[in-house]
């Protein structure tokens, strides 16, 4: 059931957002953002789903299907899956930068509490 995917994506998004909005621990905020990111992947993959479809590979079609029927017919959307690959790569880079910034903040301020790292305000 594809609906479950969407519900799971929304649930993940909400859990991640809850963490970002309410947790003051910066590591937990990064985890929340990672959860939200995972939910966008799940959402994209679910958008690419077609009922009863196969993988969009035209060589060596599975038994009972010809290349021609795949071209005209029922395959999962490869473009949305590509989006996910792109976003996964970007997401890894962003998380790395995120965590290194948090590490440097902890070294300077000796705290993980985002509420105590707010010299800039007003």
């Amino acid at each position: 059931m594809i609906l479950v995917n969407y519900l799971a994506a929304v649930a993940l998004l909400c859990i991640g957002l809850y963490a970002v909005l309410t947790r003051r621990n910066m590591i937990k905020m990064v985890m929340g953002l990672s959860l939200m990111e995972a939910s966008t992947y799940l959402f994209m993959i679910s958008l690419a789903y077609r009922a009863g479809s196969t993988a969009p590979v035209l060589l060596n079609p599975p038994p009972g299907k010809s290349t021609q029927s795949l071209v005209h017919g029922n395959v999962a959307d490869p473009v949305l899956q590509n989006f996910c690959l792109t976003a996964v790569v970007i997401g890894v880079a962003v998380t790395a930068v995120f965590l290194s910034v948090v590490v440097r903040i902890v070294q300077h301020y000796r705290t993980l509490d985002s509420d105590r790292v707010r010299d800039l305000r007003g």
């Binding site: 962003v94 910034v101 948090v102 903040i105 301020y109 985002s114 790292v117 800039l120």
Partner: peptide
Amino acid sequence: PIALESAFKLL
């Protein structure tokens, strides 16, 4: 150190 704080908010 405020550069780090601002980078975190930007992120």
